[in-house]
Design a protein around this nucleic acid. Structure first.
Length: 499
RNA sequence: GGGUCGUUAGCUCAGGUGGUAGAGCAUCUGACUUUUAAUCAGGCGGUCGCUGGUUCGAGUCCAGCACGACCCA
C-alpha cells in the first residue's frame, strides 16, 4: 500500500503556508465551551427564530469531514463524538487573513471555531463562524466521503480509518462498552466482587485448549498466557469471597475464524452455595437486563433472524438431540444412553470413528453435528457427559452426567457453566485421567494442578461458576457476522513493510 | 491444513476472445457569499500484490509466493 506522495507533499506545503501566516503547526490545546456532540444534543431541536433571539455563542472543535467552497464563503462539516455539525464560514465575517487560513485547510484537519449557533435556510443547525483556529493537519488523505472505506483488510489493519469513515463501526464499540458496563452493574447489584487474577500461569488450566507459551527470565521458568481464570477464581471462593467475577482476556493458541480470535474477552463468575440451576436463572435475568439496557428492547436481529430474549428454552443435551434429529425417525433416549446403539447412530450419520471414542464423546459429536447451529433462540443445554467436563460435579442420580450447561443464541455458544466439582479426591482422579489423555497425545487435555487440589482440600463450599463470551454476545447485539468486527484490533498476519 | 474467490490511482470500482490502462470521488488551477455526494471549466495522478514462465506482445493465460474474505477440518 503506497501513500500518495503528491498528496502528502501538497499538504506539507499547506502546513508550511499555515505557519507562514503565524499559526503553530501543532498547537497545544483549545478551550471549548461545547463539544460537537453537546451542540447537536442541545440545539438540535431549537428553532431558527429562537436561536436568533438567544444568540448563543460557542467555541468548539473537531475534524473537518467535508468542505464545500463557494468563493468568498464556504460550508463545511466537523465531526466529533460520532456527530457532525455544519459550519458556515464567510470571508466578510472572519476577515481576510482568517479566511486565507481557512482556504489552506483540507478534509481531515482538526480545527477549532468560534461562532454563533444558527440555522441555514434549509434548516440545518450551523455555526456561523467568527474565527477559525488551526489545530492539527491531516498529512494523509482520508478515505473517500461517499463510499467510505470498505476494504476489510485495511479496515482491520488501520482501524482508526475505519472508525473515521464508518459510523456503524463506531457504534459497535459503543455497544461493547455499554454491554460490559451493564454486566458490571448487574453483578455488583448482586453483591459480586470484581477481581483480577493472573494473566500468566505456570500451569495453563481451567479449560481445554492449547496455550501460548512465554518465559520469565528472572525466575527462569516457562509461563503460559491464561486460557481461563477459572482455577484462580475458585481459589478465591475457597478463600471466602462468595461471589467473584472477572472480565478480562483469555488466550488460546488455536485457529482464527469468524468465531475465534486468539485473544478474546470473557466474563467469569462464581457463586457459593449455589448450583448450575441457580446460574441458569441468573443468566436469564442478566441477559434480559443487559440486552434491554444496551439495545432498548429484548428482540435482536441477527443474521436475518429475530432472536427473542424474552423466551429462554431449557433442554438436556440428550433431549436436544432427539428434538433436532434430522429425519422423522428419531431414536429413543434409551438408545442414546446405550454405547453400542449410539455408536451405530453416529456412524450412520457418516461421521468417521477412530474407535476409541467414549460414550460422552459420541454424544458430543451428535450434538455438534445436528443441534448446535439450530439453537437460534436463547436456549440452555444442560447435563453434559462427564468425560467432557473435568471440573464439573456429577449428577447424583446419573454418574455419567455432570451438572453443566451451555447457553446458545444465534447458533453461537455464548456461555458455559457448571456446579463446581469441590471433592478434592475426585478432582485429583479427573486430573489423572486427563493426564492419561495427554500422554496419548491430546495436547488439549487438562494438566494436573496440585495446588488447586490442595486448595480444595481446605474446603470449597458448594459453588456454581460460569463463563460468558463477551465478543460473541457483542456480535449478537450488533448483528456482526465475524468476531473481528467486534474486536478493535483483531490479529492479522503482519504484512511486509513497504519501507 | 484443504477448497473457492479476491488484490488495478489516496478511496470506491470498470477493464469480452492477449495489442503498453479508464471512471467517479479526492487532489491541483480558475469561477462562484445558503451549500450539503455543491456546481461549472481545465489539469495532475499507475512497478495493474510479488516472482517467474508462455508469447512478437501479459492487467488479461500458466506456475509459485504473499496478504485477505468465505466455506470445510
Amino acid at each position: 500500500m503506497s501513500e500518495a506522495p503528491d498528496h502528502i507533499e501538497q499538504r506539507y506545503r499547506k502546513l508550511a503556508q499555515i505557519q507562514q501566516l503565524g499559526h503553530a503547526a501543532y498547537p497545544h490545546k483549545f478551550e471549548r465551551t461545547h463539544t460537537v456532540e453537546e451542540l447537536v444534543e442541545e440545539f438540535g431541536d431549537v428553532s431558527a427564530e429562537e436561536l436568533e433571539t438567544r444568540s448563543v455563542k460557542t467555541r468548539t472543535a473537531g475534524r473537518l469531514v467535508a468542505i464545500r467552497g463557494h468563493g468568498k464563503a464556504s460550508f463545511s462539516h466537523i465531526g466529533g463524538g460520532g456527530k457532525r455539525l455544519q459550519l458556515y464560514v464567510r470571508q466578510d465575517r472572519v476577515g481576510n487573513e482568517n479566511y486565507e487560513l481557512y482556504r489552506l485547510l483540507d478534509v481531515g484537519d482538526f480545527v477549532g471555531i468560534e461562532g454563533e449557533m444558527a440555522r441555514t435556510r434549509t434548516g440545518e443547525l450551523t455555526v456561523f463562524v467568527n474565527q477559525v483556529f488551526f489545530l492539527s493537519k491531516a498529512l494523509l488523505p482520508l478515505p473517500e466521503k461517499w463510499h467510505g472505506l470498505s476494504d476489510v483488510e485495511t479496515r482491520y489493519r488501520q482501524r482508526y480509518l475505519d472508525l473515521i469513515a464508518n459510523p456503524d463501526v463506531r457504534d459497535i464499540f459503543v455497544v461493547r462498552s455499554r454491554l460490559i458496563s451493564a454486566i458490571r452493574r448487574f453483578l455488583e447489584e448482586k453483591d459480586y466482587l470484581e477481581v483480577e487474577t493472573p494473566m500468566m500461569h505456570p500451569i495453563a488450566g481451567g479449560a481445554v485448549a492449547r496455550p501460548f507459551k512465554t518465559f520469565h527470565e528472572a525466575l527462569g521458568i516457562p509461563l503460559f498466557l491464561r486460557i481461563a481464570p477459572e482455577l484462580y477464581l475458585k481459589r478465591l471462593v475457597v478463600g471466602g469471597f462468595d461471589r467473584v467475577f472477572e472480565i478480562n482476556r483469555n488466550f488460546r493458541n488455536e485457529g482464527i475464524s469468524t468465531q475465534h480470535n486468539p485473544e478474546f474477552t470473557m466474563l467469569e463468575f462464581y457463586q457459593a452455595y449455589s448450583d448450575y440451576r441457580d446460574l441458569m436463572d441468573l443468566t436469564e435475568e442478566m441477559l434480559k437486563r443487559v440486552v434491554k439496557d444496551v439495545t432498548g428492547g429484548l428482540k435482536v436481529e441477527f443474521r436475518g433472524q429475530k432472536i427473542d430474549f424474552n423466551n429462554f428454552e431449557r433442554l438436556t443435551m440428550l433431549e436436544s438431540i432427539l428434538k433436532y434429529w434430522p429425519d422423522d425417525d428419531p431414536p429413543q433416549e434409551d438408545e442414546l444412553r446405550d454405547f453400542g446403539a449410539i455408536r451405530d447412530l453416529v456412524a450412520g450419520l457418516g461421521e468417521s470413528l477412530e474407535g476409541d471414542e467414549t460414550w460422552g464423546k459420541l454424544v458430543a459429536m451428535l450434538f455438534e453435528r445436528i443441534v448446535e447451529e439450530k439453537l437460534v433462540q436463547p436456549t440452555f443445554i444442560y447435563d453434559f457427559p462427564v468425560e467432557l467436563s473435568p471440573l464439573s460435579k456429577t449428577k447424583d442420580e446419573d454418574r455419567a452426567l455432570v451438572e453443566r450447561f451451555e447457553f446458545f443464541a444465534g447458533g453461537l455458544e455464548l456461555a458455559n457453566a457448571y456446579s463446581e466439582l469441590n471433592d478434592p479426591d475426585e478432582q485429583k482422579r479427573r486430573f489423572e485421567q486427563q493426564g492419561e489423555e495427554r500422554d496419548k497425545g491430546d495436547l488439549e487435555a487438562h494438566e494436573m494442578d496440585q495446588d488447586y487440589v490442595r486448595a480444595l482440600r481446605y474446603g470449597m463450599p458448594p459453588t456454581a461458576g460460569e463463563g460468558i463470551g463477551i465478543d460473541r454476545l457483542n456480535m449478537i447485539l450488533t448483528n456482526s457476522s465475524s468476531i473481528r468486527e467486534v474486536i478493535l484490533f483483531p490479529h492479522l498476519r503482519p504484512v511486509a513493510s513497504a519501507e
